[in-house]
Amino acid sequence: MNKEEIIAELKTIIKPYSEETAAFESIDEDTDFLTDLKINSANLVDIVLDIEEKFNIEIDNDSMAKMLTVKATVEVIESKRGNGGQ
């Protein structure tokens, strides 16, 4: 799975939690979940849990701490899946 594919999966996970349709449509690596997508901070936990299920990975607290942007989240997913993925 390459970066684009990870971002595409991520978008389907994030969509139900974002009310900012315009920001969601123009999502890119620099998009911030809280400030750009206005995702409720309590729903970030749901996103982390959804990512764990979808990608079959376990996200530790230190990794979760970084997951405020698309870029950081993709990096966490890539590192947990092992470099290069499967």
């Binding site: 409720n40 309590a42 936990v45 849990l49």
Partner: peptide, 17 residues
Amino acid sequence: LAKIQSNWQRKGYLDKI
């Protein structure tokens, strides 16, 4: 809103926070 927006009883949820 919290009632509809968040399901804290979801498996793993409280363990993360």
